[in-house]
Amino acid sequence: PRDLVVPVKVVGDTLGYIHVRLKIDDFTEPIRRNLYLRLFSTLLIFSGGLVLAVIISAHYVSPVVRLAHAAENVAAGDLSQELPVEGKDEVGRLTRSFNEMIVRLRQNRALEEAVRENQYLTHLGKLSSGMAHEIRNPLNFIGLAVDHLDAMTEGKGGEGEAEKRQVIGRIKEEIGRLNELVTNFILYGRPPELQRAAVRIPELVVGVLRLAEERLQAQSISCRTKFGDALEIHADPDMLRRALVNLVGNAVDAMPNGGTLSVYAGPRPGGRYSVVVEDTGIGIPAEDRERIFEPYFTSKVSGLGLGLVLTKKIVDAHGGEIFVDSTPGKGTRMEISLPGGAAAEGAPG
């Protein structure tokens, strides 16, 4: 305690004294305790908030993260993802919808695989039927011709020998058809493997036309050729020869009653090299023009419908393009454009 004495004066005279005794407590300890209590309360509230945030994160954020990872796996093609459904809140509803989506995707994939397998079997059936038909006819002819070869020359002298040579020529032609059929079938089933070399297109064209000479004469088809500068291009000669054989063969097939076959080859502006095969045959109907490069599509009585498909594959492998222009009843123009040498003016066609 502390004593305080205060004098009482009036006009300079001291009339008396006031004695005050003060009892002052020490507040330092209560203030310190209050400070510690506030600090503890703050830490307790912060810790409780942190624990609550962790609980909320585990309940809401973690399932969303798992859902995002599962969605990434599904986008990569893994449909085996399926997440446990926890609760009936928004996250649970989202997880349930995700699982239902996965089930539908699995069903769609199974359906697509079934459709693909059915299409494959359908194509295989058409291919097998076409192969059997195409092979059976030449084999039947060859078998009958071989059986009658000796009878053809018996007692006929020179006339019989000429007939025999004609039949042997037909046999060779049918064997060539069989070989061409099998080769096209084998090449269609695998991507072209180019063996590039320096190639002069006019020489290839002349060789192909020489092979078709007998058919051209038999069907009264006249042939016209025109070649530009005989530049060399870097290409696979065997593959290009096969493509030209297919184009020329189709043109001849389109003119059973005769006509004109025109083949032009030469450089084009822009560093390209062009080969044009044009006929005056029956032409291609407008509704079939978009389908001529589809496998197994053909408007012929015989054939597998692989010739133009293989031709396009060969042209694409060379970095080229193929263009079709046809008028029913007037003829068809097929043009192959390939990467070539320098452009030349006055190209044919």
Rank of each mutant, 00 (worst) to 15 (best):
K126L: 07
A151G: 09
T122V: 11
T95Y: 04
L127P: 00
L94K: 05
P138Y: 05
N179G: 02
H123F: 05
G176C: 04
A145V: 09
K172L: 14
L149A: 12
V146L: 13
G157T: 03
E173I: 00
Q119S: 09
E113T: 10
E117D: 12
E117M: 08
Y120D: 02
M101W: 05
L105M: 13
V115C: 04
T95E: 03
T95G: 07
G157I: 07
I135T: 14
L139K: 08
L105A: 12
N99A: 11
E174L: 04
E100K: 13
N118I: 02
R106G: 11
G157V: 03
I175S: 11
Q166V: 02
K164I: 02
L111T: 12
R136V: 08
T95S: 08
K126N: 03
R170H: 03
G176K: 04
K164N: 04
K172C: 05
E100R: 15
H148F: 13
G176N: 08
E180P: 00
D150S: 15
R177E: 09
G157D: 04
V167T: 13
D89L: 06
L139D: 07
N179H: 05
S97N: 10
G169C: 06
A114L: 14
Q166W: 05
G160S: 06
A151I: 13
M131S: 02
R177K: 13
G155T: 07
E134Y: 08
H133F: 12
K172Q: 10
A110Q: 15
I168W: 01
Y120F: 10
H133C: 09
R93Q: 07
H123G: 04
A114P: 03
V103E: 09
G160L: 08
Q119I: 03
G130F: 03
S97E: 12
E86A: 14
N118S: 15
G125E: 07
M131H: 01
E161K: 12
D89F: 04
L94V: 11
V146Y: 03
R96M: 11
L121P: 00
I102E: 04
L121M: 08
E174Q: 11
E159S: 05
E163N: 13
D89W: 06
K88W: 08
Q166D: 13
D147V: 14
Y120A: 06
R170F: 01
N140H: 11
D150E: 15
R177V: 01
L127T: 00
D150R: 15
N140F: 08
L127I: 00
S128P: 02
G176L: 08
I175Q: 09
A151F: 09
I102T: 09
G130Y: 03
E100P: 02
R93G: 03
F141R: 10
V91P: 00
L105Q: 07
E117T: 10
L105E: 07
V103N: 02
G160P: 01
